[in-house]
Each structure stands twice: as C-alpha cells, then as structure tokens.
C-alpha cells in the first residue's frame, strides 16, 4: 500500500477547496441564515440576488454541475410556472389584463415575484448545502457535538438502503416480468404490477433487519465506549468563526428590525 495513502488519514481531511472545506456546521448555519434572510428582507430583488449568489458559490465550490442538475427543476417549475399561476390568480386592484377567471394585476405580478424569489433563494441554499456537504462529514460533526451515533447510523444507512432497495426493486421487477406480469399498458395494468414488486421488496427488507442487527452487534455497534474515527476534520479557523458569527448577528438585527417595523 502506498505510504502517501496511509499518511492521508493522519492529517485532518481537506478537499483543497476553501468553500467545501468549511466546517459542516458552519455550512448549516450559513445555509439557514442566507436561505431565510429573504423572508426577513421581503424584497424580491434581494431574493433573486441571493439565488444568483448561490449559483456563483456553487461554481466557486466546483460543484456547479451537480448543483444545477437539481436546481434547474426548481427554476423551471417554481421560477416560471409558479409565477404564472400567482400572476394570473392573485387578487389585486390595478387590472392589466383579464379573461375568464384570469386577472393579471400589478399587485399579483409583484406578489408572484415575491413568492418566487423566496422559494428560489431558500431552495438554492438547501441544495447548495446538500451538494457541498458529504453526509459522513456532517454526521461526524454531529457526533463531535454529542449527538448519539445511532443518529449517524440512521442518516447514513438511509442513503445506502435507498440505493440497495432501488436495485432490489429492479431485480424483483425483472423477475415478475419473466413470470408474466405486465408493467406496460394502461393505468390499471401498470397499477396491478405495483403490488407484486413492492410487497416482496418490503418483506425482504424487513426480514433482513434481524440478521443485520446481529451483524452490527458483533461489530460492537452498541458498545458503551468512546468512538474513534478513521477520518478527522480540521477545526474551524478563527476567520471562519468570525464570518459565521458576523452573518448571524446581521440576521438577528434584520429580524429585530422586521419585527419592530411590523409592530409599529
């Protein structure tokens, strides 16, 4: 085995990209603050600016492709269609255009822009967080903060089980097809194919838990000792802490300002 490969595990884990190397909890904190700030500011220019900012950050973090493969769906469905629906049906006084139940007004266009900017900004923050944070790093940080390792297991195992069951589902479907079950045709034929696939899938998965629990106990899953880690993450730098804290304070000030304005 290569000496460099082993040496890698003696150092804290870094990927070389300053955005991706931020501490997972800092990223979570930034996601919440930046993603929710448009709800406080309530200005669609700010909201769209945030959405644009997230796209730029994804490019800087080198994950634009995987980020945008999810984000374009939100942009199309909620950036475009939600705006149309809002613009056509929201109540308003100054009518621009009217046909049957559709009433496009100044107010409805602005309410459409507002809601679209909120949805885009929040979705952008959420997808960006997921795409820049590997789940094992996130659960590692949670455990460092004292969360039980059972939570880590549930989170990581869920993703693994989804892949496994997805493959199982394909195998079962092929077998049932070989047995003569129609998976194409009209809705009722396709609906009839659902049960013979999902039934064995669930029962198989459930009956495998017993073996799995024995296997995990044999590997000291529930041993009441302090855990060690193969991989460690660097401690957050002072600069990182200051940036996160600064943004947190700005967010709280904005929130207080919004509440004061709302009460007056």
């Amino acid at each position: 085995m290569d000496y460099g490969f082993i040496e890698k595990y003696n150092q804290p884990w870094t990927s070389g990209n300053p955005i991706r190397d931020l501490n997972p909890l800092s990223k979570l904190n930034l996601m919440i603050v930046l993603g929710l700030s448009p709800f406080v500011v309530q200005n669609y220019v700010y909201g769209f600016g945030m959405a644009l900012l997230f796209i730029i950050i994804s490019i800087l973090a080198g994950c634009f492709r995987s980020f945008f493969s999810l984000y374009w769906k939100v942009l199309l469905l909620f950036g475009f269609f939600l705006f149309l629906v809002k613009a056509a049906f929201s109540p308003g006084e100054h009518v621009i255009f009217q046909i049957w139940g559709i009433r496009v007004t100044y107010e409805s266009i602005f309410s459409g822009l507002n809601i679209v900017s909120l949805v885009l900004a929040f979705s952008g923050a959420f997808i960006l967080f997921v795409k820049t944070t590997p789940m094992d790093e996130f659960t590692y940080m949670l455990e460092q903060k004292g969360v039980s390792h059972v939570v880590s297991f549930i989170i990581l195992s869920s993703f693994q089980t989804i892949t496994d069951l997805g493959q199982n589902a394909k195998i079962i479907m092929e077998s049932q097809k070989a047995r003569g079950i129609e998976t194409e045709g009209n809705v009722f034929q396709r609906a009839k194919a659902y049960l013979p696939v999902i039934g064995p899938l669930i029962l198989n998965a459930i009956s495998s838990t017993e073996e799995k629990s024995i296997a995990m106990d044999a590997r000291a899953f529930s041993a009441p000792v302090k855990h060690t880690y193969l991989m460690e993450l660097p401690k957050p730098s002072i600069k990182e802490k200051i940036i996160v804290l600064g943004l947190d304070i700005i967010f709280v000030l904005l929130l207080i300002g919004r509440i004061v304005l709302w009460l007056l």
């Binding site: 059972v150 297991f153 195992s157 496994d164 669930i202 998965a205 838990t209 629990s213």
Partner: peptide, 13 residues
C-alpha cells in the same frame, strides 16, 4: 435494536 434498523428501511421504502 430492531426498531433502529427498521427506521432506515422505512425511509428507503
């Protein structure tokens, strides 16, 4: 223990 192992399976199902 079984409950813990059933949770990920529930999510995946």
């Amino acid at each position: 223990k079984l409950t813990i192992f059933l949770i990920p399976i529930g999510i995946a199902v």
